[in-house]
Design a protein around this nucleic acid. Structure first.
Lengths: 258, 258
DNA sequence: TGTGGTGCAATGGTCAGACCAGTAATTAGT
DNA sequence: ACTAATTACTGGTCTGACCATTGCACCACA
């Protein structure tokens, strides 16, 4: 019978198998999006597993955002199952948003020192390169009416890289680079939003100009100060952005009674 | 009030909280990539949760690919997430020994900030831990007649780690840790020499004492100052050591038979 | 007729202890 | 010296119980 064949196929009583079987049932349309699926006790009987294993299986589906669970109510099939795939690093920032600002804190420190050393140790060749990178970035930011945000971000990064390389400390360059990569890979979307708004973009441009001037002029203290200010601004802008998106989320939740 | 808020952080016996606490420990470097973490039974005792809840917590981390589990063996921290734990910098040290001092430069910066933040943000619990680590180190350094240099180095490292963890910035802890690992793996022999000489050892002890006092007293500026001084001293000592060994090399070269 | 409690049953969440199954180091036997 | 059995772990599963929320049916009262 059906029950027999199910048992033969479903012999494995492991949480992974439980999750796979339930997922299959959902994909086959037995359990439809929005539907409340059977209670844990009942699922235990049907799937012939203990409640502990079943719960670990449900945990897997929950972490894949395939189901949602409310105590005293039950588990419902999530309405949106398109692959919401995110990088493993994103998880870190989603669950611990504070980490983003921890990262910015460290980056500000290194960026400041980098600018300081660049102004103090930079050779004339370094300054030529820094100025070149700065001009490429500034020209593109000013002239272009329709801005390709991604390209601007690359130019921005190239400018900061040139400054850090002028510090002549490869360890500093490398550490800074990896932190920046981490930052961009996690919140590139947010950074893009920053460039899209005129206000923040102009502030960033002004700070870049001052940073360039200080480094080229060899004013180390001023360079560090401007760099710190720059990172502080970015941090504040990201904080505002975060608060904003939280407000949006909350209002969206209020409008979603079903 | 304090008890309530602490309980909210560490007392929640929910799988999500278990996962968050373990992730925090990994982020802070208590459990490091590749390391085998304690058995489930032991973790139950430490985190004060049942094995079922703990296992659901581990399931969360596993689905995020933060840990890997093998039956009969244990769970290991995935070596996937380290930002720059694996050092592509290593080859730099072989080719250009000067990089050592670049590293010390960056490390001084981070240690300084770490001490600064520890003094400013450290909780009473943090201070207790810092003091404990300091006493362990200081007691061993004073009492023991025949000093096991390797053990002293470990105690030293534990003390600095406790300070950095009090900064409550996991990114800072992580970066600092990887730089320290890099340093020790490259010049541990030299560091050993520092501990062997009485003069440097006493200077280091005094600086550790002042660093401890400043952090515990909450004097952030002083803490940063002492930390910077500490790293500066070490740098100078290593410079002298380097010059010394160069002299030795040269004299050895003069004796070379060819 | 409505309206606001109130109790109850069902749900998910957690717990404790037992046993199964795989691993690896140690030991006994050849 | 090598191999096989032993042993003491490890994670994996099961059972049955209790706790905390939820939602609904019920009932007293305005």
């Amino acid at each position: 019978m059906t029950l027999l064949s199910e048992e033969r196929v479903a012999g494995q009583r492991t949480p992974e198998n439980v999750a796979a079987r339930l997922e299959r049932l959902i994909l086959d349309g037995v359990f439809r999006p929005g539907q409340l699926l059977p209670s844990e006790r009942r699922l235990c009987e049907r799937l012939k597993v203990s409640r502990a294993s079943l719960r670990e299986g449900l945990r897997i589906l929950r972490s894949k955002q395939i189901i949602e669970t409310r105590q005293g109510h039950g588990s419902t099939v999530a309405s949106l199952l398109p692959m919401h795939q995110q990088s493993p690093l994103m998880h870190l920032f989603n669950d611990h948003p504070r980490t983003l600002f921890d990262l910015l804190e460290v980056r500000a420190l290194l960026e400041g020192e980098s600018a300081f050393l660049a102004a103090r140790r930079g050779t004339s060749m370094d300054r030529v390169l820094i100025t070149r990178r700065y001009r490429e970035m500034a020209d593109y930011a000013e002239h272009s009416e329709s801005i390709d945000v991604e390209r601007l971000a690359r130019l921005d990064h190239a400018f900061h890289l040139a400054v850090s390389q002028a510090s002549h400390n490869p360890v500093l360059v490398h550490t800074l680079q990896s932190l920046t990569d981490l930052l961009l890979s996690s919140v590139f979307a947010s950074v893009k939003h920053l460039y899209h708004r005129e206000g923040p973009r102009e502030m960033i441009n002004r700070q870049h100009a001052r940073l360039h001037d200080a480094v080229v002029a060899g004013d180390a203290e001023q360079a560090r100060h401007v760099a710190l200010e720059h990172l502080t601004s970015i941090t504040e802008l990201l904080r505002e952005l975060e608060a904003e998106s939280e407000r949006l989320e909350r209002s969206a939740m209020r409008m979603e009674p079903w």
